[in-house]
Every structure is written in C-alpha cells, then in structure tokens.
Design a protein around this nucleic acid. Structure first.
Lengths: 292, 292
DNA sequence: GGTTAACCATAACGTTTTGTAATCATCAAG
DNA sequence: CTTGATGATTACAAAACGTTATGGTTAACC
C-alpha cells in the first residue's frame, strides 16, 4: 500500500513547487521530500515530475495522482477529529415507533429536522415486537413501545400514556357487546391487543377478542378508520390515530365507563454509549410526549 | 499520520468480525491484526471495539471510523490503477478556438460528448493570442488558431482553411472601396486582421483598414452580423460565422475576384505527452475539419 | 472436571523502513 | 569565478513493522 506520507509530500510539493519549502512546511528535511517523491515514482512505476532547467512540472501521471491523492491526504489529516467529533445536530438517527404515536411524532420530527439541516431522521412504523428487536440489533437508535421491552439489552423510560378509544360508524349510538359482535372488528397490527384491553375493562360479559368476527385489516395507520367510516365494522385505536382521521363526522368515538390507557416507553439499547445526536433527539421526544 | 494499513485491518475486521480470518485475508498473522487495532486505538485515543464474551462490537467511535476509513482504504487500494489508467473517453478536455471554427466545432463536440457520457468538454472562444497562451500555460489541451503559433512550446498542424467573406447589408450590390468606406466597418476581435487580408487582395487602392471608419464592435460571434443586417455597416468574417447567421436574407455575401482564405492550425503543447482522451479528441477534430 | 479448539492479547526479536546529516551536482546571478 | 539556491545521493542511527512464541479466556464436548 502507498505510504500516505509520500502522498502528502507530493501534494505539498505541487503546491509549493519547491522541495525545500515543502520540507520546511512538513517539518522534515529536503532530502526526505526528495526521497518521498522518488519512492512514489518507484511505487507507481511512472515518473511524476518533468524536471527541467528551472524547477519542474507535473507529468500527466503526476496530474492524475495529484487529483486522486489530495482528497485522500485531506481525509487522513482530518480523520482523527472526524472520528472524535460528536455533533449534536448532524448525522443519521433511526427512530421506530408504533403507528399511533408515530403520527404524533411525525410532525415533531419533521419540524426538528427543518431546524437542523444536517440531521437525517429515518422514521418507521412497526409493531412492538419488531421495535424491540430493531433496538436490540441496533437497527434503530430510538424506539417507542407500548409494552415493557423484555430483552435485557433494552433500556426504557415511561414517557406517558395514550387513551384507547372505541370507534364505530357514526350511525352506532351506545354500543353493547352484542352490537359490536354483530358489527365486526376492523383489525390492525395491535388490534386484538387493544380490543382485549378496552373491552374486558368495560364489558363484564367479554371474554376474548376471539369471540368477535374480524371484518378487515390494515397495517396503514391512516387507513384503518376508512372501513369503520363506511360502516364495515368497529375498531379500537389509540387517540392520536383517531384524532388524525380526515373524516371525523363519519365515525363515532364512544365514552366508556372505564377509560383504558396504553403506556408509552422510550426504548434504547442499554449497551451502547449514545452519540450526542441520539441523546438530543431522545430528550426532544421526551419533551414532545410530555407536553402532549 | 495514520497508517492506512491499520485502517485496512480495521475495515476488514469489521467485515469479518474475526481477527484470525482478517489476518488470513490480509496475508498476515492474527497478532499483526491485533496490534494494528491497538495502534489505531492508541493513535485516536479512543477504543474502537467493545470486547465482550463472544466477539466484540463497534463502539460509536468505531462506527464513525469505519464510515470514514472505508472510502480512504478503497481509494488507496485503487490509487495505482487510477493513476495509470488513461481512459480515452473519460475525463475533462479543454478546447479553445476562435469564434468562427468554434461555431463549427460546437455541434461536433456536443455530439461527441453525447456519445461518451464520461467525457467533459470545456469549449471556449477566444482570439488567437489568448489561445496560444492558454495552450502554452496548459489551461487548454487543444487550441485552434488561424495563425502559426510563435511560442516554441506549441506544436501545430495545418488542418484546413476557411474562406473570408465580405458581408454587407442586403441592399448593397457590387461594393466599391469607397462605398465600403461610406458604409463603415463592424469590427470584431479579428476584424481588422480579416479586413486587411481581404481588402488588400481585392482593392488595389486599399492601404489599411485604418482608413475605414469603425461603426460597431462585438465579441459575440453570433451577434456581429446583426448590425450589418440592419444596414449599419459591413464586415469581414470567416464563412462559418456567416453560414450560421439566422437571417441570411438581410445580408449579402459578395464574391470577390481574389478569394482569401485563412489557414487553420490545430495547436497543442509540445512538451506534454498527451492523455488518450486528448489524443482521441484531437483526431476527431482533425477529421471534422477535413470533412467540412 | 478435564480436554480441546477457537479466539484474542502480549512479549520478544530480527528485519525493513524511515528520515537526518553530510555531501555532491547543477545552475543562475552578481 | 564566486556565491547562493536548488535538488539528488549516500550512509547511518532510530523507529516501526510483522513474525514467532506464548499466555489467558471462553465454549463445546466427552
């Protein structure tokens, strides 16, 4: 492999056009520079300089080398600081969250990214299980979950809760369990989990969401309420997913005797020391979720 | 400066996740790899690997280093071939020519560049003097001149000739010298030179273009004939500049008893060995000019 | 529980490479 | 003809390098 010190000498020489000055600039002797160039030429098997009466000029190979070498020398020179640097508002952060909080996060993340142009935020939606494994495998820097992560490598904080809402077509007034059974369930990735939580807390005769027929499924958070609005079934969703639905007049949200909440956990990998950009975003998210 | 061999070891290690296999791949011993990583960590003043029970994973610094180092290692590995490579249809070529041939060249150059996407052609117009010095100073790889270059570092070939034409407003029939004097001259960068050549060969009573009043000047080859078409004066131009004028009906080109031609020289720097891309383009241009 | 194999770290050491000091060669200016 | 500036060359001591040999840890297997 080429010795980059040779490249540096060569590049400096191209700048100064003078061996002696190059040596001074690099805190070495003229002899050293001379040898560096010679070694470079030997290594490449081509002469780099056309020596003539007063001074020299680059050969074609020299020009090409200069073009190639200069950026290499520069990156090598800045390597150390680049590796040590930990800019708080630059670089990539991967965030993964369930659909509902995701909708809330989305506008915050976009706004934050607008404030910090160097920042690249990769934001994806996924069900709890995928989120946990994404964090453990370090595909995601920050995860949001509605269950406590089980993996020992996960660190988590309780950062709030979100109410689960029973949503039916607008025509449905005060729903009974039998009415819901007749209506049918519009399922989504966390659908059965949510339905079990909400219905068991409010209907004594409810045993399991198994007893309710499924009439549809969508993993697009924005689309789950469409079939409900068309009268095709009911569903149970966190409030943010409901709040962002475009046609609120065609659905009905029901106030139940026992409100049910889903906890929210901010999950990160316990093992890694966090880069500043992740730490900063983590605290931003915490603040957003606290303030609503 | 960092030893790039250390970087290479590190990058390979990140790939293989295994010191021994890294060593094999790099034809060295496991001990060597281990020492390379240690030296890197020492140099950067940060640990790169989180050693744990079975194997290791990268620290944040390690990840950043990998990101920085991989391209450096790659460019260093390919440096030699890159410097030695001389692709005939890739890279930049600077061409400089007088306006008239330039117009002819332009479409050829564009067509050639379309055929070879990697090729970047910088084509500029300039008067003879500037062209010669651009070639000598190597700002241009290929120059076209209508005079023999004087500088000893210029190599040149006769590549054709171009007729000089007397152009007047359409209303002018058979021009006499006195009529031209009355009409006045529309000057351009080579205007006086062209006028002297053409008029002295065809009008025995012509002494010098000084005797003809100048009515205008443009260094935009496409605009010189505008004032002529408006009846503001006459000019003398090479044929290509005339042929590309948009309103031929409003000017008149006069057939003179003694046609005058301007030679065309392809000029390059004599000292440098030419890169393939320049040589190729040189021959293309030669062919274009020969065929018309 | 002991053996084995895989893996990485460390120490010692001969070899190679490096960069300096000293010197030489060339050239232009005074 | 001298002088000063420039680059090339040589010899040598110091530094860096990568190998061999060895030690420590862990996991798998009998």
């Amino acid at each position: 492999m080429v010795n980059p010190a040779w490249l540096r000498s060569f590049c400096t020489l191209v700048h100064t056009q003078n061996f002696t000055r190059t040596a001074e600039q690099l805190f070495m002797t003229q002899s050293g520079v001379s040898q560096h160039i010679k070694k470079l030429e030997g290594f490449l098997g081509a002469s780099l300089l056309d020596r003539d009466a007063n001074g020299f000029e680059l050969t074609e190979a020299g020009r090409r080398l200069y073009q190639q070498a200069q950026p290499i020398v520069d990156s090598l020179a800045h390597l150390q600081e680049q590796v040590m640097a930990d800019p708080p508002h630059q670089g990539r952060v991967n965030v993964i969250s369930p659909g509902s909080v995701g909708l809330q996060l989305y506008r915050h993340l976009l706004g934050f990214q607008q404030q910090h142009q160097g920042l690249i935020i990769d934001h994806r939606f996924a069900p709890n299980g995928s989120i946990e494994s994404a964090v453990v495998q370090k595909h995601a820097d920050i995860g949001l979950m509605t269950q406590i992560p089980q993996h020992p490598q996960c660190a988590f904080n309780d950062v709030g809760r979100e109410q689960l809402l029973l949503v039916t077509p607008a025509s449905e007034s005060v729903p009974s369990l039998s009415a819901l059974e007749k209506l049918g369930f519009i399922d989504h990735p966390d659908g059965h989990h949510h339905a079990n939580l909400l219905l068991s807390a409010n209907f004594s005769d409810f045993s399991s969401s198994q007893q309710i027929p499924v009439r549809g499924f969508s993993n697009q958070i924005g689309l789950i309420l469409e079939p409900v609005s068309l009268g095709l079934g009911f569903t149970v969703l966190p409030q943010h997913a409901v709040a962002s639905f475009a046609k609120p007049e065609s659905i009905r949200v029901h106030t139940l005797s026992t409100p049910v909440y889903e906890p929210l956990y901010l999950v990160t990998s316990a093992t890694t020391q966090r880069p500043a950009r992740v730490q900063v975003l983590l605290e931003e998210i915490r603040a957003w979720l606290k303030s609503g």
